[in-house]
Amino acid sequence: MSPERQVTEYIVHQFQPGVTADELDADYDLLANGIIDSLGLLRLVDWLDRTFDIAVGEADLAPSDFRTVGTICKFIKERSR
């Protein structure tokens, strides 16, 4: 499964049950539309950390990196070890 599909399925499953992964576009704004709030962001980062082996230091955690599935995938690509 591609990272994009993994991320989409995780977000749908965790934050928006009832929606299928196919419905969530890669550029849908997860923050402005209230899918991921500040507490949800922590859960997401923790999951990224475990799933993709990314070390996310707290100092470089910017919400804009997690605005859409697309930006999250870009973040994974840049940070993968």
């Binding site: 934050f15 928006q16 049950p17 009832g18 929606v19 539309n33 209230g34 709030d37 949800g40």
Partner: peptide
């Protein structure tokens, strides 16, 4: 904005 929106 509700944290969960279930449409059915």
């Amino acid at each position: 904005i509700p944290s969960v929106v279930v449409v059915a």
